[in-house]
Amino acid sequence: MRTTFSTVPLAGFPFPRSEYERRQQNVLEAVESAKLDAIVVTAHGHLRYLTGYDGSGGYFAPFPLILAPGRAPTYVVRKFDEQAVRAYGCIDQIDTYVEQSDFAKACADVIRRQGLQSKRIGFELGCSNLAPADVSALQAQVPDLKMADVSRLVSSVAAVKSDLELEVMRDAMRMTDAAVRAFQSSLREGVTELEMVGTMAAAVEAVTGKANGEIGMSQPNILFGERTKLPHGYPMQHPIKKNEPAFLEVGASKHGYFAGLVRCAVLGRHPEAESLHSLAEEVIEAVVASIRPGITAGAVDAAGREVLKRSGRHGVFRQRTGYQTGINWTERGDLSLEPNAHDILKPSMTLHMPNILCSENGYLFGTGAHVLVTESGAEILSHVPSSLYRA
Score class of each variant (00 low, 15 high):
V77I: 12
L125Q: 11
Q219P: 03
P143T: 08
V27Y: 04
S278W: 00
Q25R: 14
V157H: 03
F317T: 14
G233N: 10
V135W: 03
S382L: 05
L279R: 07
M196R: 00
E375L: 02
D343P: 00
A369V: 01
S128I: 12
E214R: 14
L10P: 01
G52K: 05
M196H: 00
T192D: 01
V283K: 14
D37T: 01
N340D: 15
G225Q: 06
M147E: 02
T96M: 00
N355I: 15
G58C: 14
C358I: 10
L364W: 06
A206Y: 00
G312V: 09
Y88K: 12
Q114E: 13
S33T: 14
G233L: 01
I291L: 10
R120P: 01
R48K: 15
H44P: 10
L261Q: 14
V135E: 07
C358Q: 15
A369H: 08
E214N: 13
P235H: 03
H383K: 13
R23G: 02
G55R: 07
A252Y: 00
R332N: 09
P239D: 12
P231N: 08
S118F: 06
D95V: 10
A172V: 02
A68H: 12
L194A: 14
Q237R: 13
V157Q: 02
R318S: 05
H383P: 00
Q100C: 05
Q93T: 13
G366H: 02
V85C: 05
V110N: 11
P347Q: 04
G57K: 08
P132Y: 07
V157N: 03
A104M: 11
P347V: 03
A252E: 00
Q324I: 06
G57S: 15
H46Q: 12
G368A: 09
L67W: 09
A203R: 00
V266C: 13
G368N: 03
Q141W: 05
C107E: 04
V204W: 01
A203P: 00
M353I: 07
R390G: 02
V373S: 12
A265K: 02
V168H: 08
G190C: 07
K241P: 01
S336T: 11
L194I: 15
V250R: 00
Y323N: 04
V287D: 07
G333Q: 11
V180Y: 03
G315E: 09
I295T: 10
I284T: 14
T330Y: 01
P143A: 06
A68G: 13
L345S: 06
R227K: 14
L335N: 01
K119W: 03
A303E: 06
A303L: 08
G304A: 08
A252H: 00
G70F: 06
E360V: 13
L357F: 04
Y257Q: 12
A273F: 02
I295M: 02
E274I: 08
L187P: 14
A178C: 07
Y75W: 08
H232E: 11
E331G: 06
N355D: 05
E274Q: 15
R310Q: 14
L388P: 10
A158G: 09
I291A: 05
V31P: 05
T325G: 11
